[in-house]
């Protein structure tokens, strides 16, 4: 199954993923339309800057999801079909336990409703919006094995260059 994977070396911090994420979750699903919407659409991915790296962070849809365990109302659940972690806003009581246990800070607050909001992996799209929007292909939608194979290939190239003193 494909996962959203990040190539940290390619992220320029342009925040195009943030905009695209908000737009795909808007009423009109268009940038220009969403600017004029009363209720501004909210992004589910955050480009954060650490020590010399920028990184688009979103829900990792963990296999062993602490947020699901921590949710007392059953709002946070694993979708059987897509195996993604999803929120049912109708059941969310705004206790923020999931926010506290998420190691990535990938869950935030939907202020008006006082419920949580997080990446839904764009399950209705073929490719998540953040992946489509990334101009440098830092965000990929890829099988884990394919991602690690690419990494191995890259390692070998770097290894050869190091051997050749380049």
């Amino acid at each position: 199954m494909k996962q959203v994977m990040i190539d940290v070396s390619r992220c320029l911090g342009c925040k195009s993923c943030e905009l695209a994420c908000a737009v795909v979750h808007s009423e009109s699903k268009s940038l220009i339309g969403s600017v004029f919407e009363k209720k501004k659409p909210k992004k589910r991915v955050c480009v954060e800057t650490g020590d010399k790296i920028t990184f688009p962070l979103q829900c990792r849809h963990c296999e062993d999801a602490r947020c699901i365990d921590a949710c007392m109302s059953g709002a946070m659940f694993r979708d059987a079909e897509t195996q993604t972690v999803q929120v049912n806003p109708d059941r969310c009581v705004g206790c923020w336990m999931c926010v506290m246990v998420c190691p990535f800070g990938a869950i935030s607050q939907q202020r008006e409703e006082n419920t949580v909001i997080k990446c839904d992996r764009c399950v209705n799209e073929d490719v998540p919006a953040c992946v489509q929007a990334c101009p440098t292909k830092a965000i990929k939608f890829i099988e884990i094995d394919a991602f690690s194979r690419d990494k191995r290939n890259q390692y070998l190239i770097n290894f050869r260059f190091a051997e050749e003193g380049k």
Partner: peptide, 22 residues
């Protein structure tokens, strides 16, 4: 999207800056 909406600024080197439209 920032460029399309006109909300990025490169006029000084404290930037580049952009405004979140949402």
């Amino acid at each position: 999207g920032f460029g399309l909406l006109g909300i990025c600024c490169r006029n000084c080197n404290m930037g580049p800056c952009r405004i979140d439209p949402f």
